[in-house]
């Protein structure tokens, strides 16, 4: 059987809210090392990869590797019924056709159980090679969210260019053009506001803003987002979930 208890249930709510508009349904794979998901959006332009480590859960048990197919909209409906401070326990039998979500309020006064029907989902698993990137940029996630939102009101695509000292986001459209530059700033006093650039080679790539805006829905998961860029390769937009795992988005360049 599979059983996992997440003390900070809000994390699971935030993960599902971050991906539910991008992917319709997906298999959640559980094994000894943790809980993961890999899925492409319906246009096959981007890929979502979630991994929550077993040790990030308060309690984790997985006797056999299982894959649980769920419709994200339905999972979201159920998780919206959990309080933000609730602990969430997920349970499923090895050959079960449902997954049970148990929500416990902090003082354990309220205990609720919701069963979600599982479904068979055909999904293609892609191998993501380990790569060394030309540039890695760490920016406050709220800043990234604001940039891609602001630029989407001007154009459809953004050119992200990284040099040693700064990362520049540029777009243009019918009404004009815009560019936003973020300088490297390793703020010691306020680490959550720091912008850090690690560069092997300057790089400039163009991406659809629509997808980057969708990825930015993961902002509540982490104070920073990490962008990894290499010439002619998909960008990785990565949110580290403190002590638990990561949510990564891969987007093919234009």
């Amino acid at each position: 059987m599979f059983e996992a208890r997440l003390a900070q249930g809000a994390l699971l709510k935030k993960v599902v809210e971050a991906i539910k508009d991008l992917i319709e349904d997906a298999n959640f794979d559980c094994n000894n090392s943790g809980f993961s998901l890999q899925a492409m959006d319906s246009s096959h332009v981007s890929l979502v990869a979630l991994s929550l480590r077993a040790d990030g859960f308060e309690h984790y048990r997985c006797d056999r590797n299982i894959s649980m197919g769920m419709k994200l909209a339905n999972l979201s409906k159920i998780l919206k019924c959990a309080g933000n401070d609730d602990a969430i326990t997920m349970k499923s039998e090895d050959n079960g056709d449902t997954i049970t979500f148990m929500f416990e309020s902090p003082n354990q006064e309220r205990l609720s159980e919701f069963d979600l029907k599982l479904m068979d989902i055909d999904s293609e698993h892609l191998g993501i090679p380990e790569a060394e990137y030309d540039a890695t940029v760490k920016v406050p996630s709220s800043e990234f969210q604001r940039i891609v939102k602001d630029l989407a009101s001007i154009g459809d695509t953004v050119e992200i260019s990284v040099t040693k000292d700064a990362v520049k986001f540029s777009t243009s459209g019918d009404i004009g053009s815009a560019n936003i530059m973020c300088r490297q700033n390793k703020s010691v006093d306020k680490p959550e506001e720091s912008t850090e650039i690690d560069i092997n080679e300057p790089v400039a790539l163009t991406f659809a803003l629509r997808y980057l805006n969708s990825f930015a829905k993961a902002t509540p998961l982490s104070p920073h987002v990490v962008l990894k860029l290499s010439k002619d390769l998909p960008v990785v937009v990565e949110y580290h979930i403190p002590d638990v795992g990561r949510l990564g988005f891969y987007l093919a360049p234009k």
């Binding site: 293609e124 191998g127 093919a252």
Partner: peptide
């Protein structure tokens, strides 16, 4: 989505 490449073109199927 004109000119947009597929992500599957970059990563091989497992």
């Amino acid at each position: 989505l004109a000119g947009q490449r597929s992500i599957a073109a970059f990563f091989s199927a497992k």
